[in-house]
């Protein structure tokens, strides 16, 4: 029960953030636009996840793979806009090739957690995030600094959770215990959403009247 409250609260906060970011969208930077699109897609995936699991009662693990790919593509472009370094495209393309190869060579991977894929993509996003921290050291008003903190904290912790996701198939581990892991993930996700909200409140809230 607690798990569902946490999970739905996370989705609810994500929905609010998505609406707020979409409302602040006009005349914003490219990075902002990409991040807003990322929020929309993630929200859609979350909704599908709930629909598949709760309403259709089907396995929704393939959505975790879609999530992994979409998150990696959008956050890579997002960090490219922030860092303005072509190396990001190069590295991200290499990783994408690897993922494509991985899924083609083993199509069954779609129905379980892709632990290796998750670890690689999230680690690379963490590296981008650290580079952005470094770049904003001497900037007075760096864009998306709070969101960057959120991404950094959430990705670092969730990598381990997702990578151990396949433990759910381990019959020896009681589902209840496994859900504890998902609760931790849910709390971290709420923390991430709160940081996204703070970013909006701090940097984009007051600017709405100007643009309207």
């Amino acid at each position: 029960m607690i798990f569902f409250i946490i999970a739905y609260l996370g989705i609810f906060l994500l929905a609010i953030n998505t609406v707020l970011y979409l409302k602040a969208l006009p005349q914003k930077s490219k990075a902002f636009k990409i991040y807003s699109r990322y929020l929309i897609l993630i929200l859609l995936i979350e909704i599908f996840t709930v629909v598949f699991a709760q309403i259709l009662n089907k396995n929704n693990l393939f959505l975790s793979n879609v999530f992994l790919i979409i998150q990696f593509i959008f956050l890579s472009i997002f960090y490219f806009e922030l860092l303005q370094n072509r190396l990001i495209y190069f590295v991200s393309c290499l990783v994408m090739f690897f993922l494509v190869y991985q899924y083609f060579s083993d199509i069954k991977l779609f129905s379980i957690y892709n632990a290796l894929g998750i670890t690689i993509t999230q680690s690379i996003l963490i590296v981008y995030s650290i580079i952005y921290f470094y770049q904003s050291l001497h900037k007075r008003t760096p864009e998306f600094l709070i969101v960057n903190i959120g991404i950094f904290l959430y990705l670092i912790c969730s990598t381990l959770i997702f990578a151990s996701g396949n433990l759910v198939f381990d019959v020896k581990i009681p589902t209840k215990t496994y859900f504890l892991l998902l609760k931790v993930n849910g709390i971290l996700y709420i923390l991430y959403q709160i940081l996204i909200f703070i970013e909006w409140r701090k940097n984009y809230y007051k600017k709405i009247p100007k643009s309207s």
Binding site: F152, L153, C157, L160, S164, L167, I173, P174, L181
Partner: peptide
């Protein structure tokens, strides 16, 4: 069998602390 979950959760908190 659940020990592994416990270890993962501890690891997550250590990571969070470091982050």
């Amino acid at each position: 069998d659940s020990q592994i979950i416990l270890i993962i959760i501890i690891a997550i908190f250590v990571l969070l602390f470091m982050a």
